[in-house]
């Protein structure tokens, strides 16, 4: 491990630890409304200031990190696993299975998602707990985003299947499942890793968009998607640079995560 990776690792641990220990670090709850001091600038009591309702931004950031940091990578992992499973099956099986799967992926991408999500929302009772709503949201994100990744992985897998080294492996008597596991999968890892890295920030932000459909993370729970949403209005950042904190934290988190884990790949 390089020094940079070590530093990144320490930072990453720090981010994860602080968000897990949010309850200890932040004396106030993310939902307590200090109604007498809304929109407070950073000060001793509120290191990052407060939001419009007087809620401590630091507490919200820490709790929001907990939600987003744990669930977005989990959902990204789920999504990549699904893409890989479907993509590799298609690429490896070839023939009509491949054609059918890719047609399904095309269909899936072009489906009117909004309607499906609305249907899902209609099926969930209105009185779900915020945590259940979050889990459903990220599960949906993970499950529904397989198609583009599966296409990429499918084409990778089918090229690898036709490769000279796969042929040689067969010629040396390597059984098919082992060929897949030992020869094809390791070569797909960079592709899958790329899918994973793209998915995390996308999911963090889509969670906020799903909130539009009554699916995302409901009040009063904070999420990075919601916190980042406040950045849409550039006029406010000028007034309170503390608003940038979630964006900075997200960037730090992603780059650390990447530098630590992609190093370990090699």
């Amino acid at each position: 491990m390089t020094t940079a990776a070590k530093v990144a690792g320490v930072l990453l641990l720090a981010v994860v630890a602080t968000s897990l220990a949010a309850g200890l670090l932040s004396p106030v709850s993310y939902e307590t409304q200090f109604r007498e001091s809304p929109n407070a600038p950073p000060c001793r009591q509120f290191p990052l200031g407060t939001d419009e309702l007087g809620r401590d931004r630091l507490a919200r950031l820490l709790y929001g990190s907990r939600v987003s940091l744990l669930l977005a990578p989990a959902a990204a992992g789920l999504s990549v696993a699904l893409s890989a499973l479907i993509g590799i099956t298609a690429g490896y099986a070839g023939g009509w299975v491949e054609r059918a799967t890719m047609a399904a992926a095309d269909l899936f991408v072009s489906l009117p998602w909004l309607f499906l999500l609305l249907t899902v929302r209609a099926l969930i009772p209105l009185n779900v707990t915020p945590w259940a709503s979050i889990l459903i949201t990220f599960l949906l994100l993970g499950v529904l985003s397989w198609a583009p990744g599966a296409r990429v992985i499918r084409s990778g897998a089918s090229a690898l299947k036709r490769s000279e080294f796969a042929l040689l492996a067969r010629a040396s008597g390597c059984p098919k499942p082992r060929l897949l596991w030992k020869h094809i999968l390791p070569n797909l890892r960079p592709l899958m890793a790329a899918q994973f890295w793209i998915a995390i920030p996308v999911f963090i932000l889509s969670e906020a968009n799903l909130g539009m459909l009554g699916l995302g993370i409901a009040e009063p729970l904070p999420s990075w998607g919601g916190l980042l949403g406040e950045l849409q209005d550039p006029g406010r950042i000028a007034g309170n640079p503390a608003l940038l904190a979630p964006a900075v934290l997200l960037t730090v988190f992603l780059s650390c995560f990447q530098s630590v884990f992609s190093k370990e790949d090699k």
Partner: peptide, 25 residues
């Protein structure tokens, strides 16, 4: 408004779940 009402009612021991829905739904 919903978040404020949620807190007001919480003080009375009432749990309010805020559900934003798209307008047609």
């Amino acid at each position: 408004i919903a978040a404020l009402i949620q807190q007001d009612l919480a003080k009375m021991g009432i749990r309010l779940n805020v559900v934003p829905l798209d307008f047609p739904s």
